[in-house]
Design a binder for these strands. Structure first.
Lengths: 194, 194, 194, 194
DNA sequence: TATGAATGAGAATTCATTCAT
DNA sequence: AATGAATGAATTCTCATTCAT
């Protein structure tokens, strides 16, 4: 029962933070929609802020696990990039609240450099950057890619992934699905003779 | 003097909304930092919300003008795309507050479908989409591009541009400048024999 | 074990009430510092208020016993006064928490005339007043003192004792010890030819 | 009108803090009894704590002025001591709220060494101590007093004054007035051949 | 005896906004 | 055009206390 309610608070808060933003969500609203009383929030968490942090921590934990589970051995390096893009699209489709929560709230949360979330997000960025860099370098070495300069391209591809994520999460529902086009776009841009 | 103060209110508010978010900025703070008293805000504007709307209107007005001023006649179609990307990077560099304001606040503001900003932003999107589509179609027709399917590619390129904008505006200051790489990335992806 | 915990609660509460005041001490804090859980407080006591009352009762019980143990037969009457002052100084030195608890909390607690503590404190005052009056009257009768009017002097001496207590308990730690001076002060004021 | 309401808030708060203690007085209660709304408290003061500090500042300011106005030139030194005691009794009678406020709240407020009040109260103590010391030393020098050791006696007399103040402010209403007895008590204790 | 979970009642404080001038 | 004073409506958070076990 206990775990139950604590979990309900977190999922309700995730939903609300994603849809209305942290600042526009009141603790009372969280409590009511979670079917508990306000003080219970403060029994389980230090305060509104900690609820937020806890959610972020949990999202990125899952995210990290998904990244770790990506196949390490693939026929081509581009397959890895393909996988990475698909993973993000998959996330946007399957856990839209989590994604929107981050997009909508992190700009302001991350203003404060010392915010707990800062470290979590930074770490995540590094992981993806490393992942991409390794791909590109290997692909370049094997002659699969013609991707220079690596560091810049990593950033550009990251921007593309984030842009797509943002579009899927915040934009209007599109009838068309441009995912394959996006992957193809990348392929043409970096794979030799493609 | 009057125009002066009204303008000061707007520029102060822009700065604050960009850095702290709409919800974390109080009318008192705007007034104080603008060197006026609170009631004056209400003399010039209906309320906090109208200040925000006014800012958005003004930003997009400028933005639209910049888009209109892009050269209509260019040697190649890709040059237009090049120009479009450069224009956005230029904006990010020269008017960072405006950009951040939109990125940080619009997700939550645009939840409310009927919000005045909604229409403004939608219209803008259409303009760019049309611009890009026209480029691609012309380029395809002339044999300059090999860009299919157009509709999807338009979205992908929009995502890339937005992703770069977001990175420049919200990310840490990067020492490297990946703009040319980004443009090159696009070229390889769509220009034939490039 | 049971007695143990109940006692631990009381001693912890005494400490906290003395140092932070009744209102600034939460039941949670008492519980935590006593190494028990909150509901246990309510098993042993009706509520926070009863913990306080219980402490007061216990303090004054000890205090009364000390008063009763003062020697009834002394060479001079002033010796009794000497003893009384010393007893209070001794209390301030040996049981500072108890003293501070009373000084810090009773003013507000005793506003409510019907408070249980009221009766306890009143009774105590009477005991001391009687003790002092008897001394002075006997000393006057025997020619040892020149203390007139007795009723007033009793109050004045009580004030002096309380003032010293307060100083010792709440004041900064003094290097000097003025106790003997205080006793001497009284002697000169009431003992004939001193 | 403005000064009016601000002043009303302060006087109401003084009354309430004196009678119920700081912690047992709510901002709502202050507002209601002062005939204003709660937010007005926050317009005029930073918070509840600042209201308290402001009151303390004002009380001690008045107190200091009264001390300064004591006659510097008197026939005997004891007359100065007489005046000092009378001044305190006068204060207790004419401004009982102020006195009770300090007695009831300062113990807990002054726990926090850095509290603004700390400095104010400390300064006051010094002034009185200096006043008394000068009296005693001059009186000893002129042969009027036989008051040794001066430092200790200063503390003892301070304790007596404080004890009397406390009695008058917190004790039950006494029918008898023991003030003259108190002064006489001091005279006998320190004036030679008295 | 003992506790993890839960709550009703209220506390201080904030804020967008307005009024009277 | 401008402001000092004022407020209604929330908002986050705390706390003594209780319930179910």
């Amino acid at each position: 029962m206990a775990k139950n309610k604590k979990h309900k608070i977190l999922s309700t808060a995730t939903q609300l933070f994603a849809n209305q933003g942290f600042d526009n969500t009141t603790t009372l609203q969280i409590a009511k929609e979670a079917g508990v009383t306000e003080p219970l929030l403060y029994y389980h968490f230090k305060g509104k802020e900690e609820i937020f942090t806890e959610i972020i921590r949990s999202i990125f934990q899952d995210y990290e696990k998904m990244l770790e589970e990506l196949p390490r051995e693939t026929e081509t390096e581009f397959e890895k990039i393909n996988n990475l893009i698909r993973l993000h699209i998959h996330m946007a489709e399957n856990r839209p609240n989590e994604g929107r929560l981050i997009l909508a709230n992190c700009p302001s949360k991350l203003k404060n450099e010392s915010h707990t979330c800062q470290k979590i997000v930074d770490r995540q960025q590094e992981i993806i950057v490393d992942y991409l860099r390794e791909c590109l370098e290997k692909g370049n070495a094997s002659g699969e890619f013609d991707a220079q300069p690596v560091d810049h391209l990593v950033v550009v591809m990251l921007c593309l992934i984030n842009g797509i994520l943002r579009k899927k999460l915040l934009g209007k529902k599109e009838k068309i699905s441009y995912e394959y086009t996006a992957i193809d776009f990348c392929r043409k841009a970096i794979v030799k003779h493609s």
